[in-house]
């Protein structure tokens, strides 16, 4: 028996979400009295995962697996599950993780709980807490199958160091043929993605027009943050659709979310509610966002944001 964790790499380097998934997997393995196995495909430095509790790393090196293919990966995960007799499979909430997890569940005949935010509250029956209703609620889901797939929500467990004496084993799964082919990947380079960001700076219709986003970008740059926006802003074409966050846009689960000129409509809040700390800057003290925020400034963004940038610059120089 074992707990199998799928590692995600970008150009050979582990993503932060892999460290979180491994930390979480170690905790689940302890609860079940079993061990952790991480499946790493084309990773440069597999032993890096020992720090987060990986007792064994199944290391796959195969040029044909350079580009992610959900069908092929789902099959390889299945081979790893069978080899390691895994009873739990843990997959992160990256775009690729969300893509492959339901296919894995069918391949191994497992119940699947996505958006999981905590360690199992009980192991017999097996119950996990997950986000639902676009973060307006949670449900405690019981998984009844022998083998289970857990989709771990980002930033819900944290990265926890738990050094173990791990081993790395080479693994050469067979690679199935597919008729679905990746033609091209277009990466918007140079910016922090909303999915990976610890901090997200977001602008709404209160910013009046696309020409005013310079200060939002500057603020984001100082904080190492990703930029985002409300739905009308992307509908109006002020910002790209990929920045639209909320119930019908991207979910945000960052440590800090700064909303500038955003009213805080229920559909907006639904997508950003699981951010840990929320700051609002809005001229209208009655804006609903103030009910959801931890910190707020009632004021004109065009005065407040430049001042905030200045204060953060001072803070940076004093804290290096």
């Amino acid at each position: 028996m074992s707990v199998l964790i799928l590692a995600e790499t970008l150009e050979g380097k582990f993503k932060k979400s892999t460290f979180e998934a491994t930390s979480y997997g170690k905790k689940v393995a302890e609860l079940l009295g079993t061990t952790t196995v991480v499946l790493a495909i084309n990773a440069t430095n597999p032993s890096e995962l020992y720090t987060y509790g990986a007792e064994k790393v199944l290391n796959v090196s195969n040029e044909n697996l350079k580009t992610f293919n959900a069908k092929v990966y789902a099959n390889i995960i299945q081979q790893a599950v069978e080899k390691e007799n895994a009873q739990i499979v843990i997959i992160d909430a990256s775009a690729n993780g969300l893509y492959v997890a339901p296919m894995v569940a069918v391949n191994i005949n497992a119940g699947y709980a996505s958006n999981v935010v905590a360690i199992p509250s009980s192991t017999t029956p097996f119950v996990v807490k997950r986000k639902a209703f676009s973060s307006k609620g949670f449900n405690n889901t019981e998984i009844n199958t022998d083998v289970k797939v857990i989709g771990l929500s980002k930033n819900s467990f944290g990265i926890i160091e738990n050094e173990v004496a791990g081993t790395t084993e080479d693994f050469s799964p067979s690679v199935i043929e597919t008729t679905i082919v990746s033609e091209k990947i277009e990466q918007t380079t140079g910016t922090v993605t909303i999915a990976d960001a610890d901090i997200v700076v977001s602008g709404g219709r209160g910013l009046k027009g696309p020409e005013n986003w310079g200060m939002v970008e500057e603020l984001a740059q100082i904080l190492g943050a990703a930029t985002a926006c409300s739905k009308p802003v992307s509908d109006l074409g002020w910002r790209p659709h990929s920045e639209h966050v909320g119930q019908t846009g991207k979910p945000v689960a960052s440590n800090l979310y700064i909303a500038i000129g955003i009213s805080g409509a229920i559909q907006h809040l639904a997508g950003i509610n699981s951010s840990k700390v929320k700051v609002v800057i809005n001229t209208d003290a009655e804006a609903p966002f103030f009910k959801a925020a931890d910190y707020g400034i009632v004021g004109d963004a065009f005065e407040v944001v430049p001042k905030l940038i200045e204060k953060l610059k001072e803070f940076k120089t004093n804290n290096i």
């Binding site: 307006k136 405690n140 889901t141 009844n144 103030f290 959801a292 931890d294 910190y295 001042k307 905030l308």
Partner: peptide
């Protein structure tokens, strides 16, 4: 069914928003 809902929960009610004055953004 492979999964069932044992129970639901609402998010914890959060404490009130702390307001910072525009005079003191630091």
């Amino acid at each position: 069914t492979a999964t069932t809902t044992a129970s639901f929960e609402k998010p914890a009610t959060k404490s009130a928003c702390k307001i910072v004055s525009t005079e003191n953004i630091g």
